Simulated assay, not measured.
Amino acid sequence: MKVKEKVLNWSLFCLMVIVAVVMLVPFFWMFSTSLKSLGEVFEYPPKWIPRQPHWENYARIWSVVPFGRYLLNSVIVSGSITLLHLLVASLSAFAFARLNFPGRDKLFLLYLATLMVPGQVTMIPNFILIKLLRLTDTYTGLILPNVFTAFGVFLLRQFFMTIPKDYEDAARIDGASRFYIYSRIILPLSVPALSTLAVFTFVFQWNNLLWPLVVVSKDSMKTVTIGLASFQGMYGTTWNLLMAAAVIGVLPSIVAFLIGQRFLIKGITLTGLKA
């Protein structure tokens, strides 16, 4: 059995290495292209390593387009959505997990059913509402519609239900209020789940293209995902600069994942153990 287990483990390890390499190939090609001249990009057969790295491509993207403004907009929008979503989702999850009121479970199932509605279906009504409120080309219009989602409420509710109620009962005996229990007991014990939701939300919103594309028309309000299209002209695309901008654009997602990595696996493992 030990020999079979070792063979199985090594086989799984080799399979995971192969899958990891296959997934990393596009990122390596993106980085390689960002260091090439425009002529080298179209060479055939393609070369994985440029003859002379052109690091100046990373300096040029800041002068060709207002890329710094695009990054700032993405940081503001993604960060604000993440913080507000954590606040709203944790409050809602606390109500569904800890408070007893008539129709709680039915209301939660109804709220959860909204996950089956594609975002493209609600996009037009959301845009009409944002347009009527004159919130197009504003941070409010970019942030507000993305704050409320059922996924975060479901994720946190399942985690809150795994926390023993003994902590809550002890706090009530000491005269603690509902908000005190939520802020001083539930939230500190839910750091893994909150970190997991924060990473998922930030990465998704950082890479969000469709909603900013609909709401934003001013160049000063564009996010990174829309700003990358600025390197595509009517008669051609500067692929080396586009890939350099894409490399910089993907770094915040990687940093967010590395920061929350130690909580990510724990949060996914513990969430959903109790229905």
Rank of each mutant, 00 (worst) to 15 (best):
P46R: 01
P46W: 00
K47R: 15
W48A: 03
W48E: 02
I49N: 00
I49D: 03
I49A: 03
P50I: 06
P50Q: 09
R51H: 13
R51D: 13
Q52K: 15
Q52N: 13
P53E: 06
P53N: 11
H54S: 09
H54D: 09
W55M: 05
E56P: 10
N57D: 06
N57C: 07
Y58P: 04
Y58N: 01
Y58I: 00
R60Q: 11
W62P: 08
W62Y: 11
V64G: 09
V65N: 14
F67G: 09
F67V: 08
G68S: 10
G68Y: 13
G68E: 10
R69N: 14
R69G: 15
R69H: 12
Y70E: 02
Y70F: 08
L71I: 14
N73C: 14
S74N: 01
S74C: 00
V75T: 14
V75C: 15
V75I: 15
I76M: 12
I76G: 09
I76E: 07
I76C: 11
V77Q: 12
V77T: 14
S78M: 03
S78G: 06
S78T: 05
G79E: 05
G79C: 07
S80G: 06
S80V: 05
S80I: 04
I81R: 13
I81M: 10
T82E: 03
T82P: 06
T82V: 05
L83K: 09
L83A: 15
L83Y: 07
L84I: 04
L84C: 06
L84S: 03
H85T: 13
H85L: 04
H85R: 14
H85M: 07
L86R: 06
L87G: 12
L87E: 13
V88N: 02
V88L: 05
V88I: 11
A89Y: 02
A89T: 01
A89S: 15
A89C: 11
A89F: 00
S90I: 00
L91V: 10
L91I: 10
S92G: 12
S92K: 07
A93C: 07
A93E: 04
F94T: 01
F94G: 00
F94I: 01
F94C: 00
A95V: 04
A95R: 00
A95T: 01
A95K: 01
F96W: 11
F96K: 09
F96Y: 14
A97V: 02
A97T: 04
A97N: 04
A97F: 04
R98P: 10
L99P: 11
L99C: 12
F101L: 04
P102D: 00
P102V: 02
P102W: 02
R104S: 04
R104H: 01
K106L: 15
K106R: 14
K106A: 15
L107Y: 01
L107V: 00
F108P: 12
F108C: 12
L109A: 13
